[in-house]
């Protein structure tokens, strides 16, 4: 045994062999794990792939992402008697509550012509971002079982949850169209501008969901904190009042007004209102139409790309718990 080993060529060509090793000495233990691995083309398990490879893996899993999002959406109301009707009922009831409080009781509708369409559009568009962020926060921490059982690029989870919210939004938009018509808003070609606006918002939401997913995976407590952050954000985004009309009356400093108007949620809400509601004309927008679109695009690209890279940077650490 040892004879044959000492007789045979001690150094395999091309293989890295430590200089200090005694020549031809039989070794019970493989020289060194890293060397042996390199020799046989083994790679480090759980290493983070390079960004282009990661994108490719994610693309290969696109069917899983789609199926997972649809499955989550269908499973959501499958135990309810009314079933999928809740997809439409939930956002409608949500809007009804805000109408009761802000439209009838507090009267924030001053200076807004079509208040109900204005309010409902705001609620639906903001809810899209809100639920994406909430789902994103728990995307990793709430699915540790999945993360610890199967191998897939983890970004698939926050993306799937954002996609689920996008599907949910389509139901809301159907309901919204009916509401608009009922309240006498005339249909127009400009309605189609909703598509690019919501597409940009989806990109923004997904990026933000990925940022929250990484933060939430380290600090699960965020899931408790986020509802309050999101509610504050909603009240500050002009969902139930017009930032442009209301803030100056209350002596809010200019910089705060600019900050509120440039916030991504307000930008997306205003663009959708501008596209859908006839009486919500360019005069109601805080800035020119071009600036608003630039704002929407800017937020989408910054968060979409930034959030993705930020999430990928910690890829190997998800699942640690």
């Amino acid at each position: 045994m040892s004879q044959s080993q000492t007789l045979c060529a001690p150094v395999p060509e091309g293989a890295p062999v430590p200089e200090g090793a005694p020549d031809g000495a039989p070794r019970a233990v493989p020289p060194d794990a890293a060397e042996l691995a390199a020799l046989h083309g083994l790679t480090v398990s759980n290493a983070r792939p390079a960004l282009p490879a990661y994108v490719r893996q994610l693309w290969d899993r696109r069917h899983f992402i789609g199926a997972f999002a649809t499955a989550k959406l269908t499973a959501q109301y499958s135990q309810a008697k009314l079933g999928q009707i809740w997809q439409v009922m939930t956002p409608l009831l949500n809007a009804a509550v805000y109408f009761l409080i802000f439209g009838l009781l507090l009267g924030t509708s001053r200076g807004i012509d079509d208040f109900v369409p204005f309010l409902v559009t705001g609620v639906f568009v903001f809810t899209f971002t809100q639920s994406s962020v909430m789902a994103g926060t728990r995307a990793i921490s709430g699915n540790l079982g999945l993360v610890r059982a199967l191998h897939f690029p983890r970004a698939a989870l926050p993306i799937a949850f954002s996609l689920q919210q996008l599907q949910q939004l389509l139901f809301s938009m159907g309901a919204l169209a009916v509401i608009l018509l009922c309240f006498g808003v005339p249909p127009a070609w400009s309605w189609f501008l909703v598509v690019p606006a919501l597409a940009l918002q989806f990109l923004f939401n997904t990026g933000l969901a990925m940022v929250m997913a990484r933060l939430g995976s380290r600090t699960p407590d965020l899931a408790q904190l986020m509802p309050f952050v999101m509610r504050t954000w909603m009240y500050a985004s002009g969902v139930m009042f017009s930032i442009k009309n209301v803030l100056p009356e209350h002596g809010v400093p200019q910089f705060a007004k600019v900050l509120l108007e440039c916030n991504p949620a307000a930008a997306y809400i205003d663009l959708v209102r501008y596209a859908l509601i006839d009486s919500f004309d360019a005069g109601q927008l805080p800035y020119g139409v071009g600036v608003m679109w630039a704002l929407a695009l800017g937020w989408a690209v910054v968060l979409g790309v930034g959030g993705f890279v930020y999430f990928w940077k910690a890829e190997e650490s998800y699942g640690r718990g």
Binding site: A33, A34, L36, A37, H40, G41, L42, T43, V44, S45, N46, V147, R148, A149, L150, H151, E316, S317, G319, R320
Partner: peptide, 16 residues
């Protein structure tokens, strides 16, 4: 950990 699902604190796992 061998499946690459749990990160290792120390040491490495190489797989084919």
């Amino acid at each position: 950990a061998v499946a690459g699902l749990l990160p290792t604190a120390n040491g490495r796992i190489y797989t084919h």
